[in-house]
Design a protein around this nucleic acid. Sequence first.
DNA 1: CGACAATGTTTACACTGTAAATATTGGGGA
DNA 2: TCCCCAATATTTACAGTGTAAACATTGTCG
Lengths: 192, 192
Amino acid sequence: MTTQHKYHHGNLKVAFVAAARDLLEQDGLAALSLRKCAEKVGVSHTAPKNHFGNMAGLMTAIVTQGYSELAERMACDGSPCQQREAALLGYVAFAQANPALYELMFSRDRLVNDDPDLMVQVRACFVILAAASKDLGWHSGTADEQDGKGQVALWSFVHGYAQLVTAGRFKKDNMQGLSILDILPALSKDAD
Amino acid sequence: MTTQHKYHHGNLKVAFVAAARDLLEQDGLAALSLRKCAEKVGVSHTAPKNHFGNMAGLMTAIVTQGYSELAERMACDGSPCQQREAALLGYVAFAQANPALYELMFSRDRLVNDDPDLMVQVRACFVILAAASKDLGWHSGTADEQDGKGQVALWSFVHGYAQLVTAGRFKKDNMQGLSILDILPALSKDAD
DNA sequence: CGACAATGTTTACACTGTAAATATTGGGGA
DNA sequence: TCCCCAATATTTACAGTGTAAACATTGTCG
């Protein structure tokens, strides 16, 4: 009974997302296809249409899960300084652990960008990064201006670093033994 | 005679790259296809095989041209401070003017990453950014250490900013009237 | 218990990249 | 000059892709 094939799979949505993520990290973004996912799950290739609509819908679901996991990786309960370090290290670690998914998460025209679930998870990540950019001391102006600029600056920095690392644009010559905490400007000010 | 169709196109390589870039910025990265390029050029759909080998070869050619243009946009003959400003503004302007091409330029598995021509152009861009990161004053350590970290930091920063802007991850609320020069930390130190 | 919505399958179609065989052209040596 | 050959472009073919429409199965709720 347990392994018996039923006409209704039950939770095909989560099975599809899992299969898609396996294919994504195993063979790369270009090799991801609905039909391979369907074969992997053991279901006809048009089954996902009921759950995701189309390819963009499936990718949006994967990416939404990705942002959720990214938020988990960045979360920290310690001091502000510890929060910042955890967020940055978690961000880069996530990108390195899921490079193909990370690329898809910042793709321009493959996702349903106005998907409500996706927007919620993206916002959750931004909130964590916003908290991590408090009291950076990078900018002048009022406290609000400092916060606004600091948020944009910190996210730009960590995202650019993560993508350039995962895309292989940094040669090892410059990077051996360095983490993002060593590269971030003026972070050492309150580091110890 | 001038518009007469010849069996040998003449300079089909540059014609294909131009057609591909048109399609790229018009319909997005997902809509780029060899067959559409061929139709646009007015040639059979297997013609590019002799020049580019495959899709990755064509994309590599487009991206190589992109890096060349990016270097042009960043280049500046003025003072070090002017060079830095020109490089950063040119970088962001290029990304905003060619968002789909810019995304492709940092794609992971669609390009021939060890292509000699591509590596030359990528390196040229890095050289300009390295010059622009001189005397940033962001890091401590020896001059060499400062330079190495500053190069990685500045490229991370500008690339992350450019991609997050073109990907629409920044809401207008935080960004109205601000340029990257306003966001860069500690750049105002020598800005005036 | 029966209708109905949810879910999955079958079939079909247009489109894509790639390979192999073929055709055309132009240029460089006899 | 002429002919051969390499470069270049075409034709044909094939496997793979996403998507739509029609159909089949299942669970649920009145």
